[in-house]
């Protein structure tokens, strides 16, 4: 099979798998949230409510497609499509197992940051094109948040890059499987860098406690206020995929990706990704939403300086640590 055909097939399988994971993820989140609030969660549709996501999708797709008067129609329609493309696009460089990588780019980390950084464009487009004050405010918040949290995100990702000396995600995982996981050793730049990555990832994916762009108690639904039916579904999907891919990248960068005993690499990678995905929900249903100014203060006064210090420490570690410690 030609390289192009191979890539297209692999991409189709990857997208199908991610979308099914998202569907099950939605069911899991509703169950999980229910348990945390002493409820049962969905129980009616299918055994244990397992078919609930299917019912949700059917319901969403049946809804009327409304475009508000005075909206910028072209941008309004383009935004959900772009959001889905960008969130799925990052998955191309995910190293699922030593042999399962859609595109093993030698600049995989840069690609991931670049495409992930583009996510703010559709969010902003949606906010602006809706011709709605809540949506516009949500869009402005999203832009401010994305610019700010992009800085600690890049700094956190630089730590494993420096320690392993590779910009390829697969290369970083390979290094970890030959030596040690970065979350475990060296503890000082490794573990705090993971915490930093996790927080910045939550902020980039607009997840609680960093979800002020769509804070429903003040902004109705933020940028998605005016969206209905299929377009809203795409935004919802993009947000879930963003979180899922973010968890997978966190697992690859800091927890050794496919590395682990007894089971095949793919199993380990999936297990680690899902574990981080669950932590995202755990955080979401535990913490409160930060206020806008607290968000900026946390980013610029705490996370960014800590990130710079971690990068310097990682560089010093590579330069000065004794050979045995590496």
């Amino acid at each position: 099979m030609s390289a192009l055909g191979h890539g297209a097939l692999y991409g189709a399988v990857l997208i199908a798998v991610m979308l099914s994971t998202v569907a099950v993820g939605i069911w899991f989140e509703r169950k999980f949230a229910g348990r945390m609030q002493s409820r049962l969660g969905p129980t009616i549709v299918g055994p244990m409510g397992l078919l609930q996501p299917l019912a949700d999708v059917v319901k969403l797709l049946q809804k009327e497609d409304i475009i508000p008067a005075g909206a910028d129609r072209a941008l309004f329609n383009l935004a959900p499509i772009l959001a889905t493309i960008f969130s799925l696009g990052v998955a191309a460089v995910l190293p699922l197992s030593p042999r399962m990588i859609a595109a093993d780019l030698d600049i995989g980390v840069v690609y991931m940051l670049a495409i992930g950084g583009l996510m703010v464009v559709p969010t902003f487009m949606a906010g602006w094109a809706s011709n709605n004050k809540f949506a516009l405010l949500g869009g402005m918040r999203a832009v401010a948040q994305s610019i700010s949290y992009g800085v600690p995100l890049v700094l956190a990702v630089l730590v494993p890059v420096i320690l392993s000396g590779s910009l390829s995600l697969a290369g970083i995982v390979r290094w970890q499987s030959e030596h040690h996981w970065f979350a475990l050793w060296p503890v000082i730049p490794g573990l705090p860098a993971f915490a930093l990555y996790f927080m910045a990832m939550l902020a980039e994916a607009n997840r609680i406690p960093f979800d002020i762009p769509e804070a429903e108690s003040e902004l109705v639904a933020g940028v998605t206020t005016e969206y209905t039916g299929a377009k809203f579904t795409l935004f919802y999907l993009a947000e879930y995929v963003h979180t899922l891919v973010g968890s997978a990248i966190g697992a690859a960068l800091f927890f050794g990706g496919w590395d682990g005993p007894f089971a095949p690499g793919l199993h380990w990678m999936v297990a680690k990704t899902l574990a981080l995905f669950v932590v995202v929900y755990w955080v979401r249903w535990t913490l409160l939403r930060l206020r806008s100014d607290q968000l900026m203060e946390l980013c610029w006064k705490w996370l960014t300086p800590i990130g710079v210090a971690l990068v310097l420490f990682a560089a010093a570690w590579v330069q000065f640590a004794p050979q045995g410690a590496l």
Binding site: L105, D106, I107, V110, Y111, L113, A114, I115, G117, L118, V120, V121, F124, M140, V143, A144, S146, I147, G150, L167
Partner: peptide, 21 residues
């Protein structure tokens, strides 16, 4: 390719977003 990645990261993700803001 590295230059391409950096171009996307800094100009589209950063400079353009700042302009919008």
């Amino acid at each position: 390719s590295f230059l391409a990645g950096v171009q996307l990261l800094l100009y589209v993700g950063g400079v353009m977003t700042l302009m919008v803001f």
